[in-house]
Amino acid sequence: MKKTFYPAVFHKAEEGGYWVSFPDFPECLTEGDDMAEAYEMAVDALGLELTDRIKRKEEVPAAREADQVDTEDGVLVIVEFDQEAYRRKHSSRAVKKTLSIPEWLDEEATARDINFSQVLREALLEKINAG
């Protein structure tokens, strides 16, 4: 689906590690013990911020250009957010769907021990990925 890229500023923390701020989302802050952990936490924090804004039907600002970011005492890092991967990781609860198929197909599939939910999941993923 959709990947977005937002600038973040990684600041060295006095106690060690890094704290991260997002110029486009001033209320969105996170931290990590090292650069790798800080980046992972930044991806999660950005994901939470974006999905919360979408759920609340609030405007999601466009990302600033890198040359428009004041890094102050930090380092500019572009954080990639993959909306599809985030949804798969955080929204995987099962939902029940009702469907209709011909009786003969139901009998044949049941006789062969075919898992209807699995077949539907696989077919939907194939259809989504082909589009």
Rank of each mutant, 00 (worst) to 15 (best):
residue 131 G to P: 01
residue 1 M to Y: 02
residue 96 K to A: 09
residue 19 W to Q: 03
residue 113 D to K: 14
residue 99 L to M: 15
residue 90 H to S: 02
residue 47 G to R: 07
residue 27 E to Q: 12
residue 110 T to V: 14
residue 60 V to Q: 05
residue 130 A to W: 02
residue 90 H to R: 09
residue 95 V to F: 02
residue 46 L to D: 03
residue 69 V to H: 08
residue 44 D to E: 13
residue 44 D to C: 06
residue 25 F to D: 05
residue 53 R to E: 01
residue 80 E to K: 14
residue 127 K to D: 14
residue 55 K to I: 07
residue 10 F to T: 03
residue 15 E to A: 11
residue 9 V to L: 01
residue 125 L to C: 10
residue 51 T to V: 12
residue 60 V to E: 10
residue 13 A to R: 01
residue 13 A to S: 14
residue 43 V to E: 07
residue 11 H to N: 10
residue 54 I to D: 05
residue 14 E to T: 12
residue 75 V to I: 13
residue 108 E to C: 09
residue 110 T to P: 04
residue 120 L to M: 13
residue 87 R to K: 10
residue 41 M to Y: 03
residue 128 I to Q: 11
residue 57 K to Y: 01
residue 22 F to N: 08
residue 26 P to C: 02
residue 69 V to I: 08
residue 84 E to A: 15
residue 19 W to A: 00
residue 22 F to S: 06
residue 123 A to H: 06
residue 120 L to Q: 08
residue 13 A to D: 15
residue 43 V to P: 02
residue 110 T to G: 02
residue 74 G to L: 01
residue 80 E to F: 05
residue 14 E to Y: 00
residue 3 K to E: 13
residue 5 F to I: 14
residue 18 Y to P: 01
residue 56 R to I: 03
residue 118 Q to M: 14
residue 89 K to C: 01
residue 47 G to F: 09
residue 78 I to N: 11
residue 9 V to S: 06
residue 42 A to G: 06
residue 4 T to N: 10
residue 19 W to R: 03
residue 91 S to M: 14
residue 90 H to C: 08
residue 68 Q to C: 11
residue 84 E to M: 09
residue 47 G to V: 06
residue 11 H to T: 05
residue 43 V to F: 00
residue 46 L to R: 07
residue 111 A to H: 06
residue 102 P to C: 06
residue 44 D to M: 07
residue 117 S to F: 09
residue 73 D to E: 13
residue 131 G to Q: 15
residue 59 E to K: 08
residue 55 K to E: 10
residue 18 Y to V: 03
residue 44 D to P: 03
residue 60 V to S: 05
residue 35 M to P: 00
residue 41 M to R: 04
residue 5 F to N: 09
residue 43 V to R: 05
residue 11 H to V: 07
residue 117 S to E: 04
residue 63 A to N: 09
residue 5 F to L: 10
residue 108 E to I: 15
residue 117 S to K: 15
